[in-house]
Design a protein around this nucleic acid. Structure first.
Lengths: 304, 304
DNA sequence: CTGCAATACTTGATTTTGTCAAGTATTGCA
DNA sequence: TGCAATACTTGACAAAATCAAGTATTGCAG
């Protein structure tokens, strides 16, 4: 079962269990197309009929008839455009908004009934998962950089372990190492000298992580960039650059004079990124780590 | 935005971006209902028309007409039931299966086109997320207990941290502690004396965890049950009992004579579970931990 | 400034699909 | 034996979608 079959499979399960996709609106006397149209009318400014039709993939003729019905029922006002009187910019009236609320309640009831067997916790889990799907389906928005919340460290560990196991064949000792690094970071809790960032999509999916950590009490002027990871689907979007800038900026402000980082030769895209940001390769040595032969690299740059 | 609004929101986004729910089948000349019906006909044994109609929420009359069309095109055979000649048990023919494959390819192409803007990694992420949703929507299947895979330890940490922060207000020192415990467990990698189990749904969602760990070299006969957590939506299903049995069974087989565990007074359901499984409360003391006042409990039982 | 293509929407004709109610044949059972 | 229930079909109709042609208006090339 590949990715596309999984999606097909979901579509079937979903329409089966939540048949409301096509019917729930009958309770309020509106057809699905009418409901979708009414929903799309709910904007700040005026809308053009053609835009609506194209946005929903509806026939223009059908759209025209449905809109006529809305106007008859007083749900929309059709103005006349001063500059171009072919257009009839549409506005939802108060009555239209009220109808939209009726619709919303009907659809909520239908969903609540259809998901009743899941229980409250199951519903919450479903909502969380579907919200992530919505987030993926939306046109990509610039990610947010934020500090760590409960559970983030665990997720950073999980994603490091899963991706490095898949792409590099690392064994579980790598997951142990990452867990140790993060456990120590959280325990020190030195918020003035150390910081972690999570990149997240507007919908809350974790897209990556980066950490600035102190090298240690014996080298107070040296910071280390660690646990820099970006999810595959967020690579090549300029996010990496933003994250590294946040990290360098913090390290500089915190008074460090130098930053180190450790990576592997095989991460070539990462290497180019470090080079572009003023890092230089200062050491390189073959090593056996996490069940694999790798070539360790140490990069370094001075901070302003 | 509550759970139900998130689901509503997903429905809209999904139908908008993957409008194929209603149309893609036109490429193959079949209406949505026809496609769904054909799909549901694909079973080992014979099917009754009424079952199909009810399963899909279709009108029986409509179903009858569509099935007549299928028979005309040679996609199904309508037998006559020996015992009850009112029924006409349905079988998909080879031609019917071929048509189903045509449909499958058309729908795959449509999904591939609609998801093209996501890229391969985005598609994989979407498929992973929607597969979890399918899993939640399916009637619950008995969970699986399995060993740890890469990323599991991280997820165990994340879920402990997130749930205890939400329900008990624990701060990040708790996440650090869990990460430390797991890092040490993975590093020891003592597979004969220690083991962790992940409970997962058939679709792969993590539903819980439990670990049997050695108390330490100074007490070789004592095992400790740790990191026992069950996701809210999987509570009250008997899963906890299965997990504790797996853990006790392993500890006994590994030669331990006694098992300890540590919990808090506020976890009353857990306390009852431990009592039912032969544990006795041996110590109880107020403590300040993870930013909260709690009452620590130690439970203990002998192993056979 | 004229005429023709393009735009924004409407209307009509037709097909497709869904719905409701009545119809046939058969079974089970009091 | 007869009557309700079951399994499916058919007819009549309504709703929705589709295709094509229609009106009014605008923009712009010549």
């Amino acid at each position: 079962m590949d990715d596309i079959d999984l999606i097909r499979n979901f579509s079937r399960t979903y329409t089966h269990r939540l048949g409301l996709l096509s019917k729930s609106y009958l309770g309020s006397g509106l057809a699905l197309s009418e409901a979708r149209l009414l929903h799309d009318l709910d904007r700040a400014g005026p809308v053009k009929a053609r835009e609506l039709a194209q946005g929903l993939g509806l026939d223009e003729g059908q759209t025209s008839r449905i809109l006529a019905g809305f106007a008859r029922r007083g749900w929309i006002r059709r103005a006349r455009d001063e500059a171009d009187s072919r257009q009839r910019p549409l506005h939802l009236t108060e009555a239209g908004r009220a109808q939209l609320e009726v619709l919303r309640l009907a659809s909520r009831t239908a969903i609540a009934e259809a998901t009743a067997p899941l229980g409250a916790a199951g519903l919450a889990a479903l909502a969380r998962v579907l919200d992530q799907a919505s987030d993926l389906l939306r046109p990509p928005q610039p990610p947010l950089l934020r500090g760590l919340l409960p559970g983030d460290a665990g997720q950073v560990i999980a994603r490091h372990a899963a991706l490095y196991a898949r792409d590099e064949g690392y064994d579980q000792s790598f997951e142990a190492l990452v867990a140790e690094i993060l456990a120590a970071f959280l325990t020190r809790n030195d918020t003035t000298r150390e910081r972690g960032w999570i990149a997240q999509s507007p919908g809350g999916r974790m897209l990556g992580s980066i950490f600035c950590m102190a090298e240690g009490p014996e080298a107070p002027q040296i910071a280390r960039l660690r646990l820099f990871l970006i999810e595959p689907e967020a690579r090549g979007t300029g996010l990496a650059q933003r994250m590294i800038e946040a990290c360098l900026g913090f390290a500089t402000a915190a008074g460090y004079r130098q930053m180190l980082l450790w990576t592997h030769e095989s991460h070539q895209a990462a290497g180019r990124l470090y080079a572009r940001n003023g890092f230089a390769l200062v050491a390189s040595s073959p090593a056996r780590a996490f069940g694999r032969e790798v070539i360790d690299q140490t990069w370094q740059r001075d901070l302003p």
